[in-house]
Design a protein around this nucleic acid. Structure first.
Lengths: 210, 210
DNA sequence: CGCTGTGAATGTATTCACAGCG
DNA sequence: CGCTGTGAATACATTCACAGCG
């Protein structure tokens, strides 16, 4: 299944969550499409990869579709997450409420800054990176969020991979090289801003009167 | 030009920056490809949209190509950025050094929390959202980084659009609706984590012995 | 000879358009 | 009649493969 499809499933899931809170009980592919910025054929195709969830002439049951997407996305269980990097961004992610809401629980924190070592955040201790293996074993972390400086990221990803972590959400501005069968998603804030700069500059040049 | 290409140009630019610090003077499409996780034909095609920068049999001049990408991406000038939302994530982005390095200068901060209003961060005052128009006019902000809660994002984006902001880097988990000709990039951390969960769960099911 | 630049070929994602069911 | 589910058509991105220049 392509990443494009999975991303959209996440968006549908979020909308269904809202619709359920608003007590809507049915939704059409057209209105899901409008709310997620795509088109109805796309919605139907995305969902049809996983089954026939809709009723012709009527649409999709909100609560049923929501439950199915929850299972498809793997959100019907808890995911133990290791936070690597206890700087500003790490601390912001630690307090990000949506993670827990979706089943992602931060069970360990790693950092090498002596200032931070030994402290604890909401009862979670900050451990040294040299203790990575022990922390992974103790907490059963399957996923790591990497918010270290760029130069530290590659090494820590390799080390955690060997320790058994299989999924990485990487905020460091590098493209990690991986050997083992491991899943990596890169989030690169600078690249997104540069994309904006490119687009704005280009608009100016091509539509100078606007 | 497609977003895919522009994203890769950003990656090439970052690598060229490194190579220049290491005093390399020439680089081939093959090695740029290796370092950015793509292939050499892709690198050559991406660059060829903008000109013939290479020398056959030799490669690309690091400093020359770096300068050209800098101009193409619009990084050869300062961009004035408004930070909207002074919470954990806003504060992490405020102290993110790479922004300034790339020419993005935070010139204003907006938030509605009375706790934060009137304070200032490194000399930049936190203003109320009701003062948005005045702040945009005073600072000449062209880009806004949206790190408000989801429910506040749509309205503030509309308001800033009317005030003249043309680019948005949106971290709120919504798909903003825009009318005017405005550029939006969405960064949705939860969607990325959910994509990991999907992939890991699927791996488990298909390769139960690993 | 080595590497770029690029048309042609391929692969992948999206959209169209309509048959078919409730 | 309204909306889904889906094969066919289209649009788009990537990769191949090689001619051509330094």
């Amino acid at each position: 299944m392509s990443d494009y499809t999975v991303r959209r499933l996440s968006m549908y899931y979020r909308i269904l969550d809202e619709l359920e809170r608003e007590s809507d009980d049915v939704v059409s592919s057209a209105s899901l499409a409008r709310m997620t910025g795509t088109n109805s054929a796309q919605v139907r195709k995305d969902l049809s990869y996983f089954g026939n969830f809709g009723k012709r002439g009527r649409g999709y049951s909100v609560s049923d579709l929501r439950e199915r997407l929850r299972a498809i996305l793997g959100l019907d269980r808890q995911w133990n997450v290791l936070l690597v990097g206890a700087g500003h961004l790490g601390s912001a992610l630690f307090s990000y409420k949506d993670f827990a809401k979706r089943g992602f629980h931060i069970v360990g924190i790693l950092d090498n800054d002596p200032e931070k070592l030994g402290r604890s955040w909401d009862g979670i201790a900050v451990n040294a990176i040299s203790e990575a293996e022990e922390v992974v074993a103790r907490t059963g972390a399957e996923v790591a969020v990497i918010v270290t400086p760029a130069h530290a990221a590659q090494e820590v990803i390799e080390r955690l991979t060997r320790a058994g972590v299989r999924g990485f959400l990487n905020f460091a501005p590098i493209k990690p090289e991986t050997t083992e069968p491991v899943r990596v998603r890169n989030v690169n804030i600078t690249i997104e801003l540069e994309g904006l700069a490119y687009a704005l500059q280009h608009d100016e040049l091509t539509r100078p009167s606007l």
